[in-house]
Amino acid sequence: MQNVLLRTEKLCKTFSSGGLQQHVLKNLDISLMKGDFTVIMGSSGSGKSTLLYALSGMDKPTLGTIHFGDNEISKLNNDKLAIFRRNNCGFVFQQIHLLDNMSVLDNVLASGLLISRNKKETAARAKQMLLEVGLGEEAWRKFPSQLSGGEAQRAGIVRALINKPAILFADEPTGALNSAASDSVLDVLTAMNKSGQSIVMVTHDIKTAMRGNRILFLRDGVIRGDMSLGAYEKGHSVERQEQLQDFLADMRW
């Protein structure tokens, strides 16, 4: 259990609307390990994004518990959850969700300065990280609307990682990007994972899922399959793709 980062017990999530109840997640027992690049897959409506947001403390489970280390986060109130997120989690959204009234650098600092009181050091770190994901000095001053989709998502990744989170959650991070931009974003995530960053990513794209070393398959709110892959390396893609496709075929995807 030493490497378990996040653990759920009997996790359930139910949505009510107009007197109708929809059980989206059903009794999930999941353990996420440190350093893993976990990919959650499933068809539309399977509950994968709901699971991601429940695991990350963005949404509260209806039943069951979520433990982050020794702390049960499922019992925290909204503000304590916010503090938990700022200290431990990073988020990358499909729709990127940068604050459009701020420059790229300010978007990153808006997260970074939530924890750090050292403005100079945080700004230097943000700039370094932006450079590492291929965003040069010119891009720092731009507003989100002036960036390409790939640039904006890489800025989103830097924002997610600026506070050195224990775990990075990514919800379809390439869903709104073209192929080239997707590759550049996935390369960044892969590189981060190689340097030890734990990542949980939701996707329904096989090419994107291949970046992970663990695949969880979700259908009708239940984990139907859990497959381990080796660490992603460029050039192994055909073999890796076949392995993943076989798994998904077993899952009747």
Binding site: M58, N78, A82, H97, L98, N101, I115, R159
Partner: peptide
């Protein structure tokens, strides 16, 4: 939307 993003990144309601 902005406030939702900020809450997601760890800003509290107060």
């Amino acid at each position: 939307r902005d406030f939702g993003i900020m809450k997601a990144t760890g800003y509290t309601t107060p």
